[in-house]
Computed example of a mutant assay.
Amino acid sequence: MNWVWANFDRLVETSLTHLWLALVPVVVGTLVSLPLGWAAARSKVAKAILIPVSSLLYTIPSIALFVIMPVVLGTKILDPFNVQAALTVYTVALLVRSIADALTAVPESVTTAATAMGYRPLGRFFAVELPLAVPVLVAGVRVASVSNMSLVAVGQLIGVGGLGFFLLDGAQTSPPNFAEIIAGIVAIVLLALVVDGLLALLGRLLTPWARVGPGGQA
């Protein structure tokens, strides 16, 4: 605890950087995944291409993807955008299947009724299908967010890693600074738990009908 109190300001500042590196890809990845998941749910051809490709993307080792990104994007090796771009790829890989499955699970009777009420495909997606898919979508976003929290730390191996700095710095001292390493690990876990809890709360707020019991009580 002595090390924590002595470096508390650094921990807070680095935690904010860690959140920024991890959560921006979640937002961007979700926006990219929505049309891809919609296409996969609507077309067998698109599904046969998008689902396997997204699954393959997630099998790429994170450190390899971090190293490849500067070559692909033309950025500097220490540019934080490399880590965020790689994590966006992982987020898309996780969410495309989830969104496609959620949209496919919407009862045909519901989509038929919406069409009969005059909804065009795009309007039906945003007004009917997407709200019903929110629980599965939020579950996928929660997994992606927690995953990104841990993967950001790996980015420290190329010089960009938020709280991963404390893990690597503590391991490289002689003797190893276990207080610094443990503080970094605990901070990452706490951030992941807080973000996961907030997303779970957001999911409940976006789906008030899911909280209504048989007697009409929330």
Rank of each mutant, 00 (worst) to 15 (best):
G74S: 11
T112W: 03
L31I: 15
R10L: 14
V53Y: 08
T30P: 05
N82W: 04
S33C: 06
T91M: 00
V138G: 05
T14A: 07
V26R: 01
E13Y: 08
L137Y: 03
G74C: 12
R120Q: 11
G123R: 15
A22W: 04
F66Y: 09
N82P: 08
A105C: 06
G37H: 05
A40P: 05
P80A: 10
G123I: 03
V12F: 05
V67Q: 03
Q84M: 15
E108Y: 09
V106L: 09
L19W: 14
G29A: 03
S109L: 01
N82A: 09
P35I: 08
K76C: 07
S98G: 08
L73E: 13
L31S: 11
Q84T: 10
V53E: 10
G37K: 03
P135C: 02
G140Y: 03
L50Q: 03
F125W: 04
N82S: 12
A86Y: 02
L94Y: 13
I60V: 05
T88R: 10
F81C: 07
P131D: 06
V138E: 09
A133I: 06
R10T: 15
G123H: 08
H18Q: 10
W5K: 12
W38N: 02
S15A: 13
P25F: 00
K76A: 13
S109V: 05
A105R: 07
P135F: 00
F126C: 04
V32A: 14
K44H: 12
L78H: 09
V96N: 00
L103V: 13
P25L: 06
S62N: 04
S15H: 12
L130K: 04
A102W: 09
I63G: 04
V71H: 12
M69E: 06
A93D: 01
L19G: 10
A113M: 04
M69D: 10
S109D: 14
A48S: 15
W20V: 11
I51V: 14
P25S: 03
T88D: 06
D79W: 09
G37F: 09
A100W: 05
L78I: 05
P35T: 07
L31F: 15
T91G: 04
N7A: 08
I49N: 05
R97G: 00
L56R: 01
A114T: 07
L57A: 03
S54P: 06
L16Y: 12
V89G: 01
V72I: 15
L95S: 04
P131H: 00
A114N: 01
V26P: 01
P107C: 11
T115D: 10
L78A: 10
L87I: 02
V110K: 11
V27H: 08
V72D: 08
